[in-house]
């Protein structure tokens, strides 16, 4: 197994005051190797975006990493000074945001925005930076790159803006590319093109890709591995085929059942997940999914479930001691906290 370029261990993030902290990320661990792609799936408020902002140390006002370790290329990011952290951003780890229109400076021409870090941080000449930007725009499939550089972001179409944002994110040859809902704001046909582009670039440039999304269809095509987040925790993680083929956590399974598929007609009724997503301001005791789960037992409301292994090498893991979907034989008795019978 190749050693991972980015590994996060038991990360927790809190917002708010010290007296009344709001935990938005709790005990999250994952790792990703060069050239590999990891999908992080979750609904709003699941903590998926906050996890990645924490990795870049770009949490918003009042956000704080309370525990955990973030190792990038052997360096512990939490112990770096602000100056050293600045050197990691952009050329170590870079970010593609969801809404390209708000993620680009509206008052600066595209070319200048793209070139700025190349000149300021990498010491390129203005001319060299310009050439590199044109190259990058070509690479992400923007025709007539030289003239596009003179445009303001609002003068470009949505798909084109997202391409510019991608070009900016890869401009300093990052080792890890974090894409936070990179296609949510786009039309389906453009969405497909952008996803293909990101995936091709990852393979071509050998970057590690972390793709954050709420759309299971999006990760299905791109990710090598998937982590499903709910209520600030990873509830299930494994290879993509494992997650989609034999999901073990009730939330993963319910999520897959709750979305309309393109080949699902009116005659088959959807079974949506009842209730509301967990509110981080009102955290639940025990398992964060227990109020919406049909397999809840009393123990679920008390003890916080630990990650259990679903396969022999520990790649597929899930956080549900009830384990209503597990083949009994696969699980050693010691792995289960609970002792009562299964449904």
């Amino acid at each position: 197994m190749p050693s991972s370029i980015l590994s996060v261990e038991s990360l927790s993030v809190c917002y708010g005051s010290r007296k009344n902290p709001i935990k938005v990320v709790e005990d999250v661990s994952f790792d990703v190797s060069s050239g590999e792609s990891l999908g992080i799936v979750g609904e709003s408020g699941s903590g998926k975006s906050q996890t990645m902002l924490a990795v870049l140390r770009l949490l918003g006002q009042g956000g704080e990493i309370t525990s955990g370790e973030i190792l990038f290329d052997g360096k512990d990011l939490r112990s770096l000074s602000n100056r050293e952290m600045k050197l990691i951003r952009g050329n170590g780890i870079s970010l593609i945001s969801q809404d390209a229109l708000s993620a680009l400076n509206p008052a600066m021409k595209v070319g200048r925005q793209m070139a700025e870090p190349l000149i300021v941080c990498d010491g390129m000449s203005a001319e060299a930076a310009r050439r590199k930007c044109i190259e990058l725009l070509d690479l992400v499939g923007i025709h007539g790159a030289a003239s596009r550089m003179e445009c303001y972001p609002h003068e470009l179409s949505g798909g084109m803006r997202q391409r510019v944002l991608i070009a900016m994110a890869i401009s300093r040859d990052p080792k890890v590319l974090i894409a936070d809902e990179p296609t949510t704001a786009l039309d389906v046909t453009i969405q497909a093109q952008i996803l293909n582009l990101i995936d091709d670039l990852r393979k071509e440039l050998g970057m590690a890709l972390v793709l954050i999304t709420h759309d299971l269809g999006v990760v299905a095509g791109i990710a090598d591995r998937v982590s499903v987040m709910y209520g600030g925790r990873i509830v299930e993680t494994g290879e993509t085929e494992q997650i989609f083929g034999c999901p073990r956590h009730p939330y993963t399974r319910a999520l897959l059942k709750s979305i309309p598929k393109i080949d699902q007609s009116r005659s088959e009724r959807l079974s949506p997940i009842p209730g509301l997503p967990v509110d981080p301001r009102a955290p639940l005791q025990g398992c964060s999914f227990h109020t919406r789960c049909e397999y809840t037992k009393t123990s679920c409301t008390r003890t916080r479930p630990a990650l259990l292994s679903a396969d022999a090498n520990g790649v597929h893991r899930f956080r549900c001691p009830v384990d209503p979907f597990g083949p009994r034989s696969n699980i050693a008795p010691g792995d289960i906290i609970r002792s009562e019978g299964r449904r």
């Binding site: 453009i190 293909n196 269809g217 095509g221 085929e241």
Partner: peptide, 25 residues
């Protein structure tokens, strides 16, 4: 449009992505 819709199935989705039609706006 139909070929661009992502489906939550890793095998199908990978197949689909190979056959997509490019649409310029």
């Amino acid at each position: 449009l139909l070929s661009a819709v992502p489906v939550p199935d890793p095998v199908l989705q990978r197949e689909k992505r190979k056959k997509q039609i490019q649409v310029e706006t």
